[in-house]
Write a protein that binds this DNA or RNA. Structure first.
Length: 805
DNA sequence: GAGTTTGAAACT
DNA sequence: CAGTTTCAAACTC
């Protein structure tokens, strides 16, 4: 997991990147944006682990002139600010073997008056504990400049001077963010990929022939902007600079109907065991732009050895990451820096590591979308639409998409550790900007996976970790005027009434996963609907999210997205279909109903009097609220990570079995294929590690599975053989040789046979033969006919066979 | 497929 | 919080 430092985000300009400009990579406009992507096919990506120290600590501090892995970081988006004006802050990354790089951070007052108070100091980036930057640093976002240049490499320095470029690199993943609308200094951040090892291999990784995804995104058109890329050897060559693909991203004018998107940086991350990596396709909605190109990795600052890179004030903050996750691609969405007082701005920046997704969202100061939606607060203030966050990636091609959230700070993405789902918190603008503490106190977090929150004064970043989930690829869903958080695998979806029901508004922080907040069709500013995220895209007409013209541009992508109802999907990427429920009395509005419990609509179920659908929004919302009131975590997955140090999953509550011995599917633990733990209150439990009964069952299950596999293989083989046989016999039949006997019974043959039989019948009739005798004669004639057919067939075979030979 | 068993959810 | 009831899934025949 890697996260763009908050200061970096704070440096981002207010201008909205026109992502449309990057959609068409073939027609880049060179003077406003530079997007460069370099893929790293074989770079192993460290899996997020549950180790105590997951996040790497990156401290940028002046005075620490470590000879290892030091870069010059100069942050300034103001062209007037020269790199020399800033103070140099060497970054020392213990264990990093990369060449020295000095961090220049211009602290002096610059001409940029937009962010005079956004200075960032202290540990800005926390990467893996294995690797820490010892020196604190100070970045003056006011300059909108972060320049990372190699001290030893004058070329890089010069290059950095010439073009304001922010480069975030992780081994196998390189992210270049050009200077944000201003000809500032380049920012080069390296996200080292050294697995669990400190430093050392980072430079080696650059020297590897592996391809890395490298991107340079420049926001804000400045003709003087030039892509600056430091080579792996801290050498910036013209060729390398040429290799950088430049894409101009014109500033989005407010008149655009589309919701403003600052910019999105897609970063490819290789995951272990995943040899193949696909480039992230451009995402219309999320405007994820990924471009693969062979590039020499620029010298960057290592943000994280592992993919877990978080910016946090507490270096030892632990991020629980499920081992199952295999993030391979990361999309980093950069957002504009808030124009308001930095101290008042707080943004939760969730990073979904487990899903191979990183989310970096920074609120945009400029309100663009006028859509109002109900908030979790008692007030119904203007809420800015939240754009969907799509988590893509199945297997080896997961990519992370970070989409700028609302233009105002009233929407926060919430990652609930231990939850498989993403949440979006809607808060009022005042709430979001009022405190440095997380504005989502109600958001439950699992101790093992607490969101990493960095309060930099300008931007608070939250880096929550969610349990590993094998997510399904979901097409980016450019959602409209709604807060949409899309998860992929387990689509817990919730529908809330589109009609104004403030009195029954549930706590949004406890909404079922996959919740999509959408403005109610015709509901005005107060109505809202919480619908399954996937449902939104699948049932677009129903949701009518397009009511807001500001999101119309994403409809094209919406049509592409197909979301399942109750697990059913029209695409192969859809999750495994859920078993249809059979509820009869609960109206599918209680947790008895699995569909409801999973936040899904009932679809293709066998339930009676089902209210778990959009037609009963009110009832469903009430039921949801009731459930949440009873148990705020009612919609959270029961199976989560165990305690620290426990790698196994465990039931959040534990079972209460009495008669099943916890060896039947009655037991939730057993059903989840996990063993009972100390929190279970079961009696006569046999679902523990050493249980012979359990072992026996496991063996039986294994044997059964083997049998199933064998049967499947046998069926496949048989089918293949039949198919092959048909393939081989078809030409034979048509050619004559080997034709089956019935193939000789043609229409003509039948007619001739019938004529023979009729003729024989006429003869018998003419000769006044008895009926029995007539039948005998007819049958006899029929026998002759058959013999003739058979003889002809045999003769034909013989002839064909002789011809073929 | 009907009936029984089971344990979570809901209720008191 | 404990006991009881309700409920739907799991299971058996």
């Amino acid at each position: 997991m890697d996260v763009v430092s908050p200061e970096l985000n704070s440096l981002l300009p207010d201008e909205i990147m026109d992502t449309e400009a990057i959609e068409d990579m073939s027609h880049p406009q060179p003077d406003s944006a530079v997007v460069q992507t370099e893929l790293s096919e074989d770079t192993p990506v460290p899996m997020e682990t549950d180790t105590p120290v997951i996040s790497e600590s990156l401290s940028l501090c002046s005075g620490s002139s470590s000879t290892e892995h030091t870069q010059i970081l100069t942050a300034s988006t103001d062209s007037a600010c020269s790199i020399g004006a800033g103070s140099q802050h060497p970054i020392s990354i213990p264990g990093a073997s990369s060449p020295q790089l000095a961090l220049k951070t211009p602290t002096s007052t610059t001409t940029s008056a937009t962010k005079p108070t956004d200075s960032l100091s202290g540990s800005a980036v926390s990467t893996s504990g294995l690797q820490k930057l010892t020196a604190p640093f100070t970045i003056s976002p006011a300059n909108h400049q972060i320049i990372l240049n190699k001290v030893a490499s004058s070329q890089a320095t010069e290059a950095a001077k010439t073009a304001g470029t922010q480069v975030i690199k992780q081994e196998g993943q390189k992210l270049l963010v050009t200077a944000i609308g201003k000809s500032g200094q380049p920012i080069v951040l390296q996200l080292p990929h050294t697995g669990n090892k400190p430093g050392g291999s980072q430079t080696l990784g650059e020297a590897k022939p592996q391809t890395t995804q490298f991107k340079v995104v420049t926001i804000g058109g400045r003709s003087e902007l030039k892509p600056v890329v430091a080579s792996a050897g801290n050498q910036l060559t013209a060729l390398q600079a040429q290799q950088l693909k430049t894409v101009q991203i014109s500033k989005k004018t407010p008149t655009s109907s589309a919701a403003p998107i600052k910019f999105i940086i897609t970063k490819t991350v290789n995951s272990k065991g995943l040899s193949t990596q696909t480039a992230v396709s451009p995402v219309i909605a999320g405007r994820v732009l990924t471009q693969n190109s062979q590039l020499i990795p620029p010298r960057t600052i290592t943000l994280s050895e592992q993919h877990n890179t978080s910016i946090q004030s507490i270096p030892s903050k632990k991020i629980a990451i499920s081992p199952l996750k295999t993030p391979s691609k990361v999309t980093v969405v950069s957002v504009a820096s808030p124009t308001s007082n930095a101290s008042q701005k707080s943004v939760t920046l969730p990073v979904n590591v487990a899903l191979g997704q990183q989310i970096l969202a920074v609120q945009q100061p400029t309100p663009v979308s006028p859509v109002k939606v109900a908030t979790s607060q008692t007030t119904t203030q203007n809420m800015k639409p939240v754009q969907s966050v799509s988590v893509g990636g199945v297997g080896g091609s997961q990519y992370k998409t970070i989409i700028p959230i609302a233009s105002q700070p009233n929407v926060q993405q919430i990652q609930v550790p231990g939850s498989r789902f993403h949440y979006v918190r809607l808060v009022t603008a005042t709430t979001a900007s009022s405190t440095g503490q997380p504005s989502v106190p109600s958001t439950s977090t699992i101790p093992t996976a607490k969101p990493m929150v960095v309060n930099t004064g300008a931007v608070r970043m939250s880096v929550p970790i969610v349990p590993a989930q094998t997510i399904k690829q979901v097409a980016p869903k450019p959602l409209t005027s709604a807060a949409v958080v899309t998860t992929t695998q387990t689509q817990q979806r919730l529908i809330m009434p589109a009609t104004p029901l403030p009195q029954i508004q549930p706590n949004f922080t406890n909404l079922p996963p996959g919740t999509v907040l959408a403005p109610a069709p015709g509901g005005g500013n107060v109505g809202y609907a919480i619908v399954p995220a996937q449902y939104v895209t699948q049932q677009t007409p129903f949701v009518s999210l397009a009511s807001n013209s500001s999101f119309q541009t994403s409809t094209g992508v919406q049509s592409q997205a197909r979301m399942p109802l109750n697990g059913t999907s029209t695409t192969e990427t859809a999750p495994r279909p859920r078993k249809p429920c059979n509820c009869t009395k609960s109206q599918c509005l209680k947790l008895y109903c699995d569909c409801f419990a999973n936040g899904e609509f009932c679809n293709n179920c066998n339930c009676n009097n089902c209210f778990n659908n959009l037609e009963h929004e009110t009832e469903r919302l009430k039921a949801i609220k009731t459930c949440l009131d009873r148990n705020p975590e009612a919609f959270k997955p029961k199976i989560g990570k165990g305690k620290e140090g426990e790698s196994d999953r465990r039931h959040s509550k534990g079972c209460n079995c009495k008669r099943s011995g916890c060896l039947k599917n009655y037991c939730e633990c057993y059903e989840a294929k996990i063993m009972c733990s100390s929190i279970c209150k079961c009696i006569g439990c046999k679902n523990f590690e050493e249980s012979p009964e359990r072992k026996t069952l496991m063996h039986l299950a294994d044997a059964a599975e083997v049998r199933v596999q064998q049967q499947t293989a046998a069926k496949t083989k048989l089918s293949s053989q039949i198919s092959d046989l048909l393939t081989r016999t078809t030409p034979v039949i048509t050619s004559g040789a080997g034709r089956l006997p019935y193939t000789f019974v043609t229409k003509e043959v039948l007619e001739a046979t019938c004529e023979c039989l009729l003729e024989r019948a006429k003869k018998a009739e003419q000769t006044h033969q008895p009926r029995a005798e007539a039948e005998r004669l007819i049958l006899e004639e029929f026998g002759h006919c058959l013999m003739s057919i058979i003889n002809s067939a045999g003769k034909a075979k013989a002839d064909c066979a002789s011809i073929n030979c």
